[in-house]
Each structure stands twice: as C-alpha cells, then as structure tokens.
C-alpha cells in the first residue's frame, strides 16, 4: 500500500524556542527520501499540530523538540491528537531526551525517539516500516 504513493509526514516544531534548523534539516532529508513533508513552522501549539495532521491526513507526525520541554509538550500533543480521532497516526520525536523520559514517552504512545546523532537513513527506514505496518491493519 505504501509503495504506490509517497508517504506524507508532518514535521512539527512545538514549544517556544526560536530555532528550527533541526526541523528543516530533517524535513529536507525526508523529502530527499521521497516523502511529502508538511512543514508548519515554529511555535506550534499542540492543537495546531493536531489540526494540521488531521487536515493533511499525514501518515505520521514527527516533532522536533530541543527546548527540553518534551515532557510538558509531547503527552499533551498525543492527547489532543487522540481526541481528534488521530489515534492511529504514530508520533516520533527528535531531540535530546534523557533515558528516563524516553520510557515514559514510549508508554504514552510515542513510537520512536531519535537523538541528535541519529542518521537520516535510520529515521526514514523507521518511518517506512511504521507506515507499512499501519497500512497492514488499516483497510485501504
């Protein structure tokens, strides 16, 4: 199912920090891997991210968080997405996340966490397999 069309990804930059270099780098890498990347810019609220994910019908949402505010932001984003009917849209995170937090985030439904050192092939491969797995249990 996923091979006959490009994967659609939303790259969100929640929180108040004003740098989106990391988000742009990953957006370009995903584009270069053949994906369609909706990029919404800086300072997105959880509601804005969920709304964009819904309207754009993306296969997956990736968040870039370097501010350290991940524990405040990510559970809220997952919650708003779930209540908007986006339970089946996986969430992955890029940023510096301490191991203890990683475990908590995984239990609330974050599918993947990538540190600043992660290479882009690892990330694109992960996205592809997540989307393929989801398409399997979702009728076309």
């Amino acid at each position: 199912m996923s091979s006959d069309r490009p994967i659609r990804v939303l790259i969100g930059k929640p929180g108040l920090d004003g740098h989106d270099r990391g988000a742009k780098v990953i957006a370009r890498a995903l584009r270069d891997a053949g994906m369609e990347v909706v990029y919404t810019g800086l300072r997105q609220t959880p509601e804005m991210i969920a709304e964009a994910a819904l309207q754009e019908d993306v296969d997956i949402v990736g968040l870039s968080i370097l501010s350290g505010a991940h524990m405040a932001l990510v559970p809220r984003i997952r919650e708003v997405m779930d209540s908007s009917g986006l339970k089946d849209v996986p969430l992955i995170i890029g940023g510096i996340i301490p191991d203890a937090d990683k475990q908590v985030l995984e239990t609330i439904g974050v599918s993947g966490i990538f540190g600043p050192g992660a290479n882009t092939e690892e990330i694109t491969g992960f996205i592809r397999s997540l989307v393929a797995a989801r398409d399997q249990d979702r009728p076309a």
Binding site: P6, E36, V38, Y39, G41, M48
Partner: peptide, 20 residues
C-alpha cells in the same frame, strides 16, 4: 522534487493565523 519524488509543503507556515 524531480530527483527524489518527495516535496516540502511549506505554505501553511504563512497561514498560522487561521489555526483553530
């Protein structure tokens, strides 16, 4: 992109006032 078949869709960046 004619090279990868991917794309960056960035027009929403300028439409944030419409959120919500």
């Amino acid at each position: 992109s004619p090279f990868s078949g991917g794309a960056i869709l960035g027009d929403r960046i300028r439409m944030r006032d419409l959120a919500g």
